[in-house]
């Protein structure tokens, strides 16, 4: 991004770009001020990107960049133009990293109607089941209340290298009924399987030479006091 490229954009496109970048610019600004504000925001953004240390991915972007549409495109925030749901009762959960998993779900319209027609229905919730066994029960777990119009959440999972399953449940007062469950999945590790002080001296030296410090691979698991940090959306 540079002045020349921004100068190639219309004032309208510049305003759209500024808005997309979270800038609240007053209407009627002269072009030079809009360009300046956008450039500043880009610089800040670049700093953040550099700090993220994600060089491989940033460089990969280069083979796709190529036109001023990149900037205009970034200013468009259109929702997908395809059907948003398939009217089925389902829940999926995909591990994202050692702490978070992405869950998305839906409840069929007629099933929702039936549930709501039953006495005492008070809404849906997600049950996170730890170490689910074949009989469907787990060693422990916790519940996450969701609104009727929610259909996806990022779930914070307290333990790495642990198998979980998500159940979508309907609540009836003090009782509940599971209506769908996800595949069981395991959260990946972020710590060495052999504790650092358990590595042989040569192995520890080679692990160091392999860059485990650079990768911020932990020697001991983090313990998070909070079990649920909620989704990123809105």
């Amino acid at each position: 991004m540079n002045v020349e490229r921004l100068n190639g954009l219309s004032l309208e496109a510049l305003y759209a770009l500024a808005e997309k970048m979270g800038l609240d610019l007053p209407a009627g600004l002269e072009r030079v001020f809009v360009v300046e504000a956008v450039l500043e925001a880009f610089d800040e953004d670049n700093e953040e990107r550099r700090a993220s240390g994600d060089a491989a991915i940033h460089i990969e972007e280069k083979k796709f960049s190529g036109s001023e549409l990149d900037e205009i495109d970034a200013s468009l925030d259109a929702a997908p133009c395809i059907v948003g749901r398939y009217n089925e009762t389902v829940i999926h959960c995909v591990p994202r990293d050692h702490e978070w998993a992405f869950a998305f779900w839906d409840v069929r319209d007629d099933e929702q109607d039936l549930l709501k027609a039953e006495g005492g229905f008070s809404g849906f919730f997600l049950r996170v089941v730890k170490n689910p066994s074949h009989d469907g029960k787990g060693s422990s777990g916790f519940d996450i209340p969701v609104e009727d119009d929610d259909n996806h959440w990022y779930i914070h999972l307290p333990e790495q290298d642990t198998v979980y399953r998500l159940d979508l449940c309907a609540r009836f007062g003090a009782k509940f009924r599971p209506i769908a469950h996800s595949h069981a999945f395991r959260t990946p590790r972020s710590v060495l399987t052999t504790a650092d002080d358990g590595l042989e001296p040569k192995q520890a030296a080679l692990a160091g030479l392999s860059g485990i410090d650079h990768l911020m691979i932990q020697n001991l698991p983090d313990r998070h006091p909070s079990r649920i940090l909620g989704g990123f959306d809105d």
């Binding site: 240390g53 994600d54 991915i57 995909v94 990123f232």
Partner: peptide, 29 residues
């Protein structure tokens, strides 16, 4: 080897985040 990638954070964070997570409802279906 453990679940991993060369993306930011070392797992699936690049391909599974707010800007693109809607994709998987469709691809899974």
């Amino acid at each position: 080897p453990e679940f991993s990638s060369w993306g930011d954070g070392g797992y699936a964070g690049i391909w599974l985040e707010k800007a693109n997570d809607w994709v998987y409802r469709h691809t899974f279906k």
